[in-house]
Design a protein around this nucleic acid. Sequence first.
DNA 1: CGCCAAAATCGAAGCGCTTCGAACATCGAT
DNA 2: ATCGATGTTCGAAGCGCTTCGATTTTGGCG
Lengths: 340, 340
Amino acid sequence: MIGGVGVVTIVDVAKHAGVAPSTVSYVLTGKRPVSAETRLRVRESIRLLGYHPHAGARALASSRTNVLALVLPLREGVHLPVVMRFVTSVVTAAREHDMDVLLVTADQGAAGLRRVAVGARVDGFLVMDVGLDDERIPVLRELGRPAVLLGYPAAVKGLTCVDLDFGAAGARCVDHLAELGHRSIGFLGAPGVVYARNTGFAQRTLAGFSAAVMRRGIASTALPVEQRRDAVHAVVATLLRELPRMTALVVHNEAVLGWVVDCLRAAGRRVPDDVAVVAICPDELAEQLRLTSVELPSEVLGRRAVELLMAKLNGQQPPPLTLLPPNLSSRTGFAASAAG
Amino acid sequence: MIGGVGVVTIVDVAKHAGVAPSTVSYVLTGKRPVSAETRLRVRESIRLLGYHPHAGARALASSRTNVLALVLPLREGVHLPVVMRFVTSVVTAAREHDMDVLLVTADQGAAGLRRVAVGARVDGFLVMDVGLDDERIPVLRELGRPAVLLGYPAAVKGLTCVDLDFGAAGARCVDHLAELGHRSIGFLGAPGVVYARNTGFAQRTLAGFSAAVMRRGIASTALPVEQRRDAVHAVVATLLRELPRMTALVVHNEAVLGWVVDCLRAAGRRVPDDVAVVAICPDELAEQLRLTSVELPSEVLGRRAVELLMAKLNGQQPPPLTLLPPNLSSRTGFAASAAG
DNA sequence: CGCCAAAATCGAAGCGCTTCGAACATCGAT
DNA sequence: ATCGATGTTCGAAGCGCTTCGATTTTGGCG
């Protein structure tokens, strides 16, 4: 407490505890053994003086920043609440590994990645919403920094990717409905633009769905859905026309899910009595609408991604692709109330 | 290009350009004049060698990190898309000032602030969702780091706060409706818990609304709304009972806005013909539902907050409270106006 | 009682940058 | 030619931490 609020350095702590600065460092990092007695004394001095290591100095000396970059997508068609939930789970998980999170928005693009990496601002990258032919992947490869991708491109060799197994999710919905006896199942997906830009997860879900209905000889029609109420109305009408005996519907588009149900009811179909709806969406939303669903596990994904990244930072080599198995929750309870 | 991908330091650049390291530094920071000729040569060397200053070293030497902390709320009742939109505008604005953004979630609480500040990880704070008696404020005061708050407590002296003028927003809705001839106006607000925890903006909107209806001698009833469909249904029914001649409704709860409209229609009231609905919500949502609204200007707020923080970092002393005036957009569509 | 390996601690050399006083060059005015 | 004044550039001293070889301490054992 020499200069008032001024910075307490490791030297101050060392003096106060009667040891060398290096010993304090070893107490802090645990990189060399320190006798129990000394460790206790140093800890006490740290507490007493209110010492906090200077992040910049540490980064300079150890070339480790304890910060990871979270690269966010900001394109249209991504569901903001899902992103947000994901972000918070990443921050929480990162803190458990004593890491902070630096936000990089994807509109800064590849240049943003390069800036952050070369400036030694972060130890590694978490890249969200990776498309099938993502421009950021070559940059990431070139930078050679540890990175974990959410979503995955065609060739995952040399990468570390994690995602929900959307193909299995699509199939899981069909299996569930088939077991309930449905023989004619519709599919409503993401907006057309999402399919057009090769986003991977949308295609994979559809592919899983299609393969499953084909395998079981189930009649089906699949359509993309735009995020406008009138568009939803139109597409539901189309579906009911094209697939008149439809008794079940798989929806992979959380933004319009509520409207889809509304439109079905408006068209005189009871949900789930006449049309069983299975959604692929965050649990919370499905819970609210009382729909059977395959969960979009943002929290688990975020946490898993952080853990994979930490593994890489510690020199391990996790598998190039981790797919989380889909988890279907049946919610056949009573139908939703209210408007109709 | 001596050691492959290795780090290019300021010394390498200096050698390559035939100057002293300090000169390179001055070219970079502009803190001392450098002759045009030298400046050009140094810039060229920087480009050629692909030099990027080491953030940690810079922070250590200059005690400036060029990082600001964004402290996010993660409580229930906050509308995630709004937060997300806000986050992205902050990141974008920050980048324009050559700043990066470190995420701190509020659940790390006051301790999180302290850790980040004392470790010299950030230059300043952006604190979201500040309540009337926020526990983080004393910590912020104690830390003495530049900070900008979104939302504001009772006493703003010595702080820098920015927010939408919610009181004016509530009043603006009433004024608009009164001018259209409405004499009986309902108000649906945030969930009860939001009022209970003194969040400020909810109270202020209600206060502005109440004062305006009183001033004009307009009949009114105000109710909180929970985020469940059945709760919305119930509260709309209550409202229609308590205020049978209601011809207009102000809704300050983006999460249930759609349901409110649904419930009104289900109750046989045309919107906006029988009941004119004015929302206080993000423009995008109002646009989608074709409702007249006062915008929740996340983008503008985020940008403004960053600018205020930058001003503080540059030694200026912005006013303790900046209130953005509400902006009402009329969306009467093709339907004729109600009332009258 | 002395010797050696193991355990604990120390000391000094950086990490890459900024900063500040000093040195140097240039030039118009003496 | 000489002298400031002005405009540029240099050199060295840190910033606070980690790291690694060296040194001291400890304790088991001949």
